[in-house]
Every structure is written in structure tokens, then in C-alpha cells.
Amino acid sequence: MSIVIEHLNYEYSDSNPAGRKALDDICLEIEEGCFMGIIGHTGSGKSTLVQHLNGLLKKTSGKILVDGEDIDGDDCDRKALRSRVGLVFQYPEHQLFEVDVFSDVCFGPKNMGMTKKDAELKSYAALKLCGVEDDLFYRSPLELSGGQKRRVAMAGVLAMNPKYLILDEPTAGLDPGGRKEILNLISRLKKENNMTIILVSHSMEDVAEYADRIVVMNKGKIVFNDIPTNVFARYKELENMGLKAPEVSYIMHELKEAGFNVDDSITTVDQAVLNIYQRICR
């Protein structure tokens, strides 16, 4: 089972006189159980792409199959689709509205038609999963810190029990500590709950460390779709698209050019430290 996108096109409606293509012939398969990173410069179409996957945006042409079911088919249940493909947006402020954290998280499962008891059980489990402490449950969402809000927003989507979880820029605006926590949480969701993760980001570091496949988008097209090392090996092309490889891979390249026998395909700090230690310090 997987999400399959075939020749997807999306054009802005007539309000844009240029009629610019936001998505141009996208073909992509997202396999179940994978951790896919989608990276691209601002305006490359990455957010537009993921909003098609749960039917928030209507494609201009093409086909999207979620577990073999055409999501634009007449018999497709939109609500069921949105619980299967969960989408967490960039700004938690855009979805927190209830008087307290707990009832806010209950909003999603209740919309799915769960009974009050089921919805509350799911919400409790989701909040726990996201590491939200019990004493925050009955606080107003507005009183929380940025990182806490983000966890609650994620819990709000996780409570609907999605099989695929899409996160649009989940680390934007967080400090390094908060970023690390959110990313660890995401990778735990994948490992322990066997969720398929699609992480949209423009931070190479985030994606390099966790994703097992990277899709690079530029001007509405998919440019690369490969494993991280292969993508970041082409860092010169990435730079032309306004992107960068992770900082550490630049260091490795320069070390290699300076004559050290290191592996320049390394993309994460931990691997780099180990590699440098093994090859140089010994």
C-alpha cells in the first residue's frame, strides 16, 4: 500500500493573470513505512504538493491514489481520507481554538464521528505520544510556548489515527533544542508506530538526518528523488536552486580536497565525527 501520484498538474486559478503552473507533471510514489523528505526553495511547490494528498487542493489534472483509491473519485470519503492522511501545518496558531488543550485535540477525532469516550481516549494517547505533560491538558492553548503548541497541534492530527503523517515545516521558528525534540518525536512515530512520514522542509540538516528518501522540488517540478547521500552529492546543482547541502557535507568535501582520506558522502554530524575520528585521528 502506498500513495501514488501520477502526472499531477496544478495551476493557480484565474486570479493569477500569468496562470503560473504550481505543479508541473509530478510523478511520485510514497511507499508505506518510509520517511520521505521533501525539500525545495520557497515557492517551489512543496506545500502545494502535500495539500493535494489529503484533498485540500483540487488538482488541475493527473491522478492521486491513496492505498489504491482515487481520492478524486465520487465514492471517496473525504473525511476518512483526511484521517488516513494526516497533515500538520506550519503554524500551530492556525488550528488551536478551543478553551483548553485537551478539548482542542478532541476536535479531530470528534469530527471523524468517534464517540466522546473514544475521542478522549485517542486524544489522551496522542498527547502522551507527543510528550505533552498532564498539567498542560486543561491550560489554554494560547498560554503554551512555541514548542508546546506545536506538540499539541501534532497531537490534534495524530488523534485521528493517521496512517500517513505529513508535516509542513514542523521545525520552523523553533530553537535548536525544540527542533531536535520535534524531530526525535517524528522519527519515534515512524519507528514505534510504524507510520509513514512525509516531512516538508527547507532545512537540509533536518531532512538529512532522518529521511530515508529525499525529493527535491524546484519550480513545481521534481528534480531529484533519491536517497540522501546521492542527493547531497550533487550539492552544486542544489545551490543553483537556492538550496544547500547540510553544512557538514561541505566540511567533508573540503577535508577531502585538502587531502584527507574522509568519506565525502556523509551528511550527518554524528557520522562525520565518527568518520573523521577513524580516518584522521588514528
Partner: peptide, 16 residues
Amino acid sequence: QETDKIMKAQMARGAD
């Protein structure tokens, strides 16, 4: 614009 984004975020949580 913000209304649009908020509506999408709530629709993603099953708001009708």
C-alpha cells in the same frame, strides 16, 4: 490569506 490557511488546517482535522 490567513483565513484560507486556518480553514485548511481545520479541514485537515475533519472540519466540514
